[in-house]
Write a protein that binds this DNA or RNA. Structure first.
Lengths: 364, 364
DNA sequence: CTGAAAGCGCTTACAG
DNA sequence: CTGAAAGCGCTTACAG
């Protein structure tokens, strides 16, 4: 690594034969400061010739805006989807010429949530902080967050003061029931989760609502189990063991992991997917949907969008230098679109038994 | 958010009745500057009383060390394991009181790799940059990286100038063969990948070497296919279709996705895992290993460790202000330890046919 | 043992 | 239209 001395604004000024003031003005396009076209050109030429890059630290110190936003993730960096939140936040930040600094707050050893992490960020003068959490209803934020614009991902602020965003689990669930009903299904089973987290309630509620709205009966159609493949196997097995006339023609699973168990159960019952049963998952958890045959139709979580939403609303708060208006409208719920793949069909669409592919299209 | 004026070093100085120099000295424990115990106490008391937190931007400007390191990830933020690289880097950074700033470089729209991203980081005065890539042999780095200490994850610098770290794919593969051989397996199949990336070659080489070293013949034991479940199904099917005497008693799969196909093939052949065939994967790609029954024994990738290694060697370069000595020793290869779960047993260990669990232990 | 002052590299009133 | 100077909040020779 070559240790060329960094070129500063002073160097550019000398090279262009003007003052640093002028250099700063033209490079930053300061309004109401009409430098002649000539000087502008000279300055710009000098800057590019020298490869001048402003020192943002110095600028930040002066302007009192670091143009950095901090992302503290609460044990989230470990979860499969965290990457998408980070990516969404980072790309939104780049578009605004902001930079994203991340810190993970391990929940394990400490009771008090993320206070140290937030302080570290604040010492660095971040202009705002995003606190990302998973699987929470309501959360108490460290008071450190009151001294800087903040937003919350994946939960709601207990104090109700901080803008927040969560997935619209309920809407996502409702939309799959609607889709299934629209394609003719009348008996739509739901493999519910036996673990009580907000997603459990939201997805269940969405299912129930949409069933009712479609005039379908959810009664006898939901069975709860562990939200794992084994639980899905059990629950689906229970539903599928019924008389054909009582048996669901479609099964909506709390999550993709349960869906893999449901696939297994269907196959053991000699039922083909989607011809004999349609199956829908939730989460779009790689690599599950694509590695099932047929590929699993499932509901996508808006991780990327939540990350982007967070920096965008933060950016607004930063410029407006004030709290957003209607705090009561939080948490914002972002849509969970369906990723349609191959596991849904109208009930008995095939009209008869076609040849059953054994594993993947390429086989046989 | 309360807009309390930030307390500065001057405020502390006034409160303690000393100069800012003294405050700085005692708070930073500057050597050779013996302030009386009394003043030290007074200063510290004042600082905590006021809740003073030094402005690191200002400090950085003065010391010319930002204590920030930049992580540019090349399309990696999308991959499942990226989170672990980021986490490893972040936690190592925190331990050194460094902060991690990340930028994703989308490969798609741009030919030139990451130059803009690195410039953005350099403007921010990062003390070093980590460039993380996946699935590469050798890579040409943007020349911007020459102006700041840098390290590379997941590839090797074409110019051979930059320290780099990669997983020891070969060693990982060899260790599974050794494990399998040690437990008595003589016919160890390898489901190779038909896609030519460095991991393909490394894992295959490790397999071959270890087979030879164990006096086992790899001949006829390897079949290549797409590195997906479907490919694994095909390849395993081919191996398992043989006469029992020729049939492998263990199958080592290029990756976990192929292993899921291998499970399927084994089950269709009426073979129990691990009693009749042992199966080992590679990648430890969540949630595959835990969602298979029995849970898949597989090889772990050192993503976390590579992230940590990167900031640690970067930190050394930063303090030493020089290139590390023996550049020729790069890339460093980090071990890929085996995660032992339930899919390996000695050949025909059971001595007879025990009851076959249908799906997961909880079933039946 | 402690403090006054310079300076890190910028931006920005303010004056000319 | 352009520039000299102050100042962002620290650290660090240097002097006393």
């Amino acid at each position: 690594m070559v240790v060329t001395k960094q070129v500063g604004i002073k160097d550019v000024a000398v090279a262009a034969g003007v003052s640093v003031t002028t250099v700063s003005h033209v490079l930053n396009d300061v309004p109401n400061t009409r430098a002649s076209e000539q000087t502008r050109d000279r300055v710009k030429a000098a800057a590019t010739a020298l490869g001048y890059r402003p020192n943002r630290l110095a600028r930040s110190l002066r302007t009192q805006m670091s143009e950095m936003v901090g992302l503290v993730t609460e044990e989230i960096a470990t979860t499969p989807h965290a990457g998408q939140i980070i990516l969404g936040a980072q790309e939104a930040a780049s578009k605004r010429d902001l930079v994203l600094t991340i810190i993970n707050a391990r929940l394990n050893p400490r009771p008090r949530v993320g206070a140290d992490e937030i302080r570290a960020l604040i010492e660095r003068q971040v202009d705002g902080v995003i606190y990302a959490t998973v699987f929470h209803d309501v959360v108490s934020l460290p008071k450190e967050m009151n001294s800087v614009p903040s937003v919350l991902i994946g939960a709601q602020d207990r104090a109700g003061r901080i803008p927040s965003v969560v997935p619209d689990e309920r809407g996502g669930a409702a939309s799959v029931v609607e889709m299934l009903a629209a394609s003719g299904h009348l008996r739509i089973g739901f493999l519910a989760s036996a673990v009580d987290v907000p997603a459990t309630r939201g997805r269940y509620a969405g299912y129930c609502e949409a069933m009712a709205a479609a005039g379908l009966t959810a009664e006898e159609m939901v069975v709860a189990a562990e939200p794992e493949a084994s639980g899905g196997y059990l629950a689906a097995g229970q539903l599928l063991a019924r008389e054909p006339a009582q048996r669901p023609t479609a099964m909506f699973c709390y999550n993709d992991r349960m869906a893999v168990g449901a696939y297994r159960a269907a196959s053991e019952c000699g039922l083909r997917i989607p011809d004999d049963v349609s199956i829908v998952g939730f989460d779009d958890q790689a690599p599950i949907p694509e590695s099932l045959f047929p590929a699993l139709t499932t509901v996508t979580l808006p991780h990327y969008d939540m990350g982007a939403w967070a920096v965008n609303t933060l950016a607004e708060m930063m410029v407006e230098r004030k709290q957003p208006e209607r705090v009561s409208s939080y948490p914002v719920q972002l849509p969970c679109p369906i990723a349609a793949r191959g596991s849904v069909a109208p009930p008995h669409s095939a009209g008869g038994h076609s040849r059953t592919p054994r594993f993947n299209g390429e086989v046989d």
